[in-house]
Amino acid sequence: MPNLSIKIGNTTFKNPVTVASGTFGHAEKYFNLEEVKKLGAIVPKTVTLLPQVGNPPVRIWETPSGMINAIGIENPGIDVFIEKKLPSFKKIGVPLIVSVLGHNPEQFVSIIEKLNSQDGIAAIELNLSCPNLGHKTLMAQDAKATEALLKKVTSISKFPVIAKLSPNVTDISEIAQGAEAGGADAVSLINTLTAMAIDIRTRKSRIGNFTGGLSGPAIRPVAVAMVHKVYQAVKIPIIGMGGIAKAEDALEFIIAGATMVATGTINFVNPRASLEVLEGITAYMKEQKISDIKDLIGCLQK
């Protein structure tokens, strides 16, 4: 059996396969728990400081090999999450990466302080890149702001901190460097690409929030290129995601430089996708006689 274990910060994960936030929901009871236990980590939907009702319908639209979404981080807020959701996620017995979003640095700090009183959390992912909340610019569109926020958060967080980055930037490696300089233990990329679809009969946007974020296999080549770029710019691990539908896709990300990979939108179509990716990576390593996943990470040939 090849060694699939990887490290982020000081935390070891038994394998590199996880799920992208927002695609595993808070619907933990719908997944076959015995199977979910095989994953390297799970990531529930992003939680904010206060409850959010989300955006008005229509929230999603099907596109070629993907979808546009503008859910608007509908969630019960960090207090309810800690009280009601966290215990059931912890019970699954898989390392838990909690995705959080603050509308300003102070909110991020408040969320981290609340999570610091908990245990059983493997890492915290800062969602710096949700495009659907009416912010003029995203935290992850400003390298200096990203660095400053990460400094604040990492100085107080008792858990490893991951910065989730946006592809809606000129140069994603600059933002990744900002996160690294601020002390991030890892970066995850990519979040969705700002996108739009129009109903030509009504001449209105298909999406209630007007614009949304594009995800799914349609964006995979963009994500692979960004992982490759960031891998050359930072030393911290990369969690790669964006349109992974099968093991071959995930392997592209790993070869490009991702230490960990996440299935996202495909989970909506194939709830077993993340497990199939894990099985496929293991089979590939056996076939290629690779005994340690670390030998694959960033092994792209020129």
Binding site: G25, P57, R59, N69, I71, E74, T265, F268, V269, P271
Partner: peptide, 27 residues
Amino acid sequence: EEIMACGLGACLGCSILTKHGYKTVCH
């Protein structure tokens, strides 16, 4: 009825408005 992605109450894409706030059509 609403456009649906996951069908499992995970993505929150098919929410509609009720007197008790947004509810998913699928779940």
